[in-house]
Design a protein around this nucleic acid. Structure first.
Length: 260
DNA sequence: ATGTCGCTCGAGGAGCGA
């Protein structure tokens, strides 16, 4: 099972990049964030034309998530948590007994702002949902744009970012709490190096200078972690003209015998 | 270094969010 997380930053602008990539790589599942499109305008047929089907939860202008799978994939949608409002940031499916949960965690703007408080509240609801869901199903993959750099090694300039948005102890404690539930930051199973980022600001020529953060994560539950064989950050689409500001995270998971 | 994108509203460019 090859699964991909990508913050597309407008699926309409990046549609050609995305469908071309799918045709080349034939992934099994894509979790897409920041589609920025209402459901009635989601470009569903572009994926149907290449043999994939879509689930999507969108809104005008902001946010929006989608899960794209092969059209013969047998799956059902998960019931989302009760979040504080209607922003479209969560979409989960179950395939062969494994939950794939796609999240676009609020950015939080700046520490202390209303948006920051909303982010922490949203994360509290999410964390509680994960805890209760785990009691029913121990096979879980949490993936998406978490808008949290888990550790200083995930930040190009930890001193400059210390205590700033995406790097506060309050945000990072959410990752630690999920780890206490048994989840693992799968990328770090295979790569302990610094300088490994998934997002670079469009400004300041951030990508070419590798001024990035690793905020796009795949967190696997204990049962799944043992089956993960590879996690890569694929920067190829970030190198194209008119790129998203995020790179893809690609994860390979072997079959889960116990999950069937 | 207020830097760059994408979106909306509405018809040109300001304002918002990231």
């Amino acid at each position: 099972m090859q699964i991909v997380s990508w913050n597309v930053n407008s699926i309409r602008v990046r549609l050609e990049q995305l469908t071309s990539w799918i045709l080349q790589e034939s992934p099994d599942l894509l979790a897409i964030q920041e589609t920025k499109v209402e459901d009635k305008d989601f470009p569903e047929s572009a994926f149907q034309d290449i043999g994939y089907k879509c689930f999507f939860a969108g809104q005008k202008s902001y946010n929006g998530v989608a899960i794209i799978v092969r059209d013969n994939t047998s799956c059902y949608l998960l019931t989302p948590p009760k979040f504080p409002d209607q922003q479209k940031r969560f979409l989960g499916v179950n395939i062969n007994g494994v939950d794939y949960v796609n999240v676009y965690v609020p950015n939080g703007s700046s520490v202390g702002s209303d948006k920051y408080l909303y982010k922490l509240e949203w994360l509290r609801v999410f964390e509680a949902w994960v805890g209760s869901r785990l009691e029913k199903n121990q096979n879980m993959v949490l993936m998406g744009d978490f808008n949290i750099a888990p550790k200083d090694i995930d930040v190009h300039d930890p001193k400059a970012w210390r205590g700033k948005i995406l790097c506060t102890d309050s945000e990072r404690s959410v990752i630690k709490n999920l780890e206490m539930l048994g989840f693992t930051d799968a990328f770090r199973l295979f790569n302990q190096n610094g300088g490994q980022f998934s997002w670079w600001d469009y400004r300041l020529n951030g990508f070419k200078r590798n001024l990035g953060l690793r905020i796009d994560l795949v967190l696997t539950s204990r049962n799944v972690t043992t089956q993960v064989t590879e996690v890569l950050i694929d920067k190829r689409l970030r190198e194209l003209s008119r790129p998203s500001d995020h790179a893809m995270v690609i994860t390979q998971i072997e079959d889960l015998g116990s999950a069937q």
